[in-house]
């Protein structure tokens, strides 16, 4: 497509207004697009020029905030991160993310996602509570230890993995790939001592053993987080602990506070008096 060429694309958008509608229906809009136009820009065009009542979430418009997740041509995408041209089609079908309720039009209700996320204690848990409350220094961690969980820190909580997950489709209580992936992220962190708390949560019903490894969550993730891998590694840890063969390493120790640290090499004193 020529950079300046404008093409007309039909956006077939699922609409639902809880004040008026019993069930969702579709409405079509014609949107002018050119090379590089994102689906989000198309939706903003509709809102500004065709129908201001259309509801959708948007914030950063650069694939960072995770607000604009939706089904585009039956696949979960971030609307701001997806160009219209990718689909090689004159018609796009836009629906809200499935496996969560719809508040209005393309706005899904993300409460369950955040409740499940909070339930796995997504933060560093340490026994030295005094240090956690009043930190005096950082914890030491090797690059190899960082690599164990770094991939999973990129989660933006957009919910695309939950929309892709067949278990989340039929089991509302299932913690879902997002929360389970984050449970692994913190269990794999060498600074953390909360593994037993999280294992007790994820080894119950509707949690880690309910994943059937369709791996659609990892395929759909727009940030390359790979929650399916996190879940299988979490499962490995839970199984190893149950069998009593889990290797446990001592938690990361505190680095020397900067004020007490001595340089590894002798730094010469100033030989020239500053003016």
């Amino acid at each position: 497509m020529n950079n300046d060429a404008v093409k007309k694309i039909t956006f077939r958008v699922q609409r639902f207004d809880p004040e008026k509608d019993r069930k969702p229906h579709f409405q079509e809009f014609t949107v002018p697009v050119k090379r590089g136009t994102t689906v989000m820009e198309g939706l903003l065009y509709i809102k500004e020029n065709l129908d201001s009542s259309l509801a959708f979430r948007t914030s950063c418009r650069m694939g960072v905030c995770g607000s604009c997740g939706m089904l585009i041509n039956e696949y979960p995408h971030l609307a701001c991160h997806t160009q219209v041209e990718e689909f090689h089609s004159d018609k796009l079908t836009l629906k809200p993310l499935p496996n969560m309720a719809i508040i209005k039009d393309l706005v899904p209700k993300l409460d369950t996602l955040f409740e499940h996320h909070k339930s796995v204690k997504p933060y560093i848990i340490r026994e030295d509570k005094e240090e956690m409350e009043k930190p005096t220094a950082g914890y030491l961690q090797k690059p190899q230890q960082l690599d164990e969980y770094l991939q999973f820190t990129y989660c933006i909580k957009c919910g695309l993995c939950i929309a892709a997950c067949p278990t989340s489709a039929s089991d509302k209580a299932f913690l879902g790939p997002q929360a389970l992936g984050q449970a692994y992220r913190y269990c794999a962190d060498s600074r953390d001592e909360g593994q037993d708390f999280r294992y007790a949560i994820v080894e119950k019903d509707h949690a880690v053993w309910n994943c059937h490894f369709a791996a659609a969550c990892s395929e759909a993730c727009p940030k390359g987080v790979d929650p399916a891998l996190g879940i299988q590694l979490l499962r490995k840890g839970v199984a190893a602990k149950a069998l009593g063969i889990k290797k446990t390493a001592a938690p990361a120790t505190l680095a020397t506070p900067p004020a007490l640290a001595k340089p590894k090499i002798d730094v010469p004193e100033f030989t020239v008096e500053p003016k």
Partner: peptide
């Protein structure tokens, strides 16, 4: 209308519905 969020769980259809996955 019931003026509440509309449930959008795919249910068992979500097992069958493979979308454009690999």
């Amino acid at each position: 209308a019931d003026k509440g969020p509309h449930q959008n769980y795919l249910g068992m259809w979500g097992w069958v519905w493979g979308g454009n996955y690999k």
